[in-house]
Simulated scan of single mutants.
Amino acid sequence: MSRTIRLVPQLVGMFVRTKFEYPGAMLLAWFSQATSYGAMYTAIALIVQRFGVLGGWTWSEMALLLSFHLLAYATGASFSFTQFRVMEDMVRLGTMDAILVKPINTWVYLVFSGLNIGYTGHIILAIGLMSWALTQVDLVWSISTTLYFLATLLSAAAIVASLMTMIGASALVWVRSRHLYSIFFGFWELARYPMVIFPFPIQLMLITIVPLGFLSTVPVAVLLGKTVPLLGDSAGLACLLAGPLMVTIAIIHWRWCLRNYQGAGG
């Protein structure tokens, strides 16, 4: 274990150096990502300001929701999306076999040898928008509030990383799993809006089968003292438990997929 931990900074360092080989392209990618999300958020802001509220949420509250959603997603995805999106190709081409025989934990190698710093643009935009939103909403800070905010942010990031890991790992058994990311991002887009605007079946799915409701709308609603559909007073505790629960499920799924992997030849 200690040897694996010592290898992590080296894996990250090698990957980061490859990305900085073309700094202009990297900075342009960060700028384009931030601009794309900025344009989307501007459109949402115009709609909310035109009608006053969206599902009972003002623009400043929506800004906190959107920034929390983007920051949690970017944090979790930087440890999982690009790394596990290519699992399907690695299985099909046989390169996964070479990784499995490396003298290091397979998951650790995949995650940290491809740690995606490309989400820096997302993170900068999210922190900027969040900093403004926190000065506008009626939120009284205390030690417990601060700890809860940080804990739910980490829990939300863990949910993203867990779901993406499970989708990628499924390729070890099914070979084809990339199409599942389309389903993930469909629900991910819904998660940037308050759950109260959706019908009951979608609300239920966002806190159970695809628990991306815990990515933003549930924890932010708890912070702002809003009622959370279906969860009620248990929403605060559910936010804290959702991340660890999904990590546990992802570990079980990952190990099951590794045990049932038969190699490129089937």
Rank of each mutant, 00 (worst) to 15 (best):
H179D: 14
A133L: 07
F198T: 04
T152D: 00
M166G: 02
I197D: 06
T165I: 12
T146M: 15
G118Y: 13
I143Q: 14
H179S: 15
I123D: 01
L190G: 05
E189N: 14
S131R: 09
A191F: 08
P199T: 13
L163K: 06
T208R: 10
L180G: 06
P201G: 08
D138M: 13
S142L: 09
M164S: 07
V137E: 02
M130L: 12
A161G: 09
L172C: 01
L115G: 05
F184T: 06
A157W: 02
W188S: 07
I183E: 06
I207S: 02
L206E: 03
L172T: 05
L204A: 12
V173F: 13
V111Q: 03
G118M: 10
T146C: 10
R192E: 04
A133Q: 05
L190Y: 10
L206T: 05
Y119K: 01
I202G: 03
S162D: 00
V173D: 03
R176E: 15
S113Y: 03
W132D: 06
T152C: 09
S170A: 15
Q203S: 02
Y119A: 05
F198D: 04
P201V: 11
I167E: 09
F112K: 00
P194T: 03
A171E: 01
Y193P: 02
S113P: 09
S155Q: 07
A157R: 07
A161E: 02
F149L: 08
F200R: 14
P199I: 11
R176K: 14
P201F: 08
F149S: 00
I202W: 00
L139Y: 01
S142K: 00
M164W: 04
N116V: 15
A151S: 13
T135C: 07
F187Q: 05
R178L: 13
T145W: 11
S113N: 08
E189W: 15
I117L: 13
W132H: 00
L180A: 11
F149K: 04
S113T: 15
T120Y: 00
A133R: 00
T146P: 07
G168C: 07
G128K: 14
F149R: 06
Y193V: 05
T208D: 10
L134W: 11
G118A: 13
T135E: 13
V111L: 02
S131M: 12
Q203G: 05
L125D: 01
M130T: 06
T165E: 07
L154Q: 00
G118V: 12
W188H: 11
L129M: 12
T120P: 01
M166T: 05
V137T: 10
A171F: 08
N116W: 12
A161S: 15
P201T: 11
I183Q: 08
L115C: 11
L115Q: 01
L129N: 00
A158S: 15
